[in-house]
């Protein structure tokens, strides 16, 4: 199975927890005409990590790095959910049954329904198991 086409490049940005940091990131991306498709902020005491799926990840990476941000690419996958009650349960059960541990996740309201973005430890293994279980994975080309 070609798992590669399901691996999506998320950009992860280290940010101090102080006013204006998100604005600085968003402004930089806007300036480069980069569209943010999905996005989350994880916060800890004093700092946070901004995670985003964008249409031009390399360009976003270079731009933010040139501005001095600590930025990294992270491989994530996107699972299609039914946009109705119980939709998340179906997906979560599939992952649980397949023994896939979720590091973190966030949802994205896609053009064709809700999407769950997942960061898992064994990404290729997870892709195979999710596909075998019958759930729908979105291809990278949907995003970039």
């Amino acid at each position: 199975m070609d798992t590669q086409k399901f691996i999506i490049r998320q950009i992860s940005i280290f940010s101090e927890n102080r006013p204006g940091r998100l604005a600085a990131i968003a402004h930089a991306l806007g300036e480069e005409n980069i569209n943010i498709l999905a996005f989350s902020i994880a916060e800890a005491n004093g700092f946070g990590v901004v995670r985003a799926l964008v249409d031009k990840p390399e360009k976003a990476h270079d731009k933010l790095q040139s501005l001095g941000f600590n930025i990294a690419f992270t491989d994530v996958i996107a699972v299609q959910m039914k946009d109705q009650p119980g939709g998340l349960y179906v997906v979560a059960k599939i992952l649980g049954d397949a023994g896939i541990n979720i590091e973190y996740s966030y949802a994205y309201s896609g053009k064709e329904g809700a999407v769950l973005i997942l960061r898992v430890d064994q990404v290729e293994d997870a892709i195979k198991k999710i596909r075998n279980s019958g759930a729908v994975l979105l291809e990278r080309s949907v995003f970039h």
């Binding site: 998320q10 992860s12 280290f14 994880a42 916060e43 800890a44 700092f47 990590v49 995670r51 790095q65 600590n70 930025i71 990294a72 992270t74 590091e103 973190y104 960061r119």
Partner: peptide, 15 residues
């Protein structure tokens, strides 16, 4: 300052 190479997207790693 956190080093560029040591940045991880996981909060637990940074903690």
């Amino acid at each position: 300052e956190l080093n560029r190479e040591s940045f991880s997207d996981k909060i637990t790693d940074i903690m």
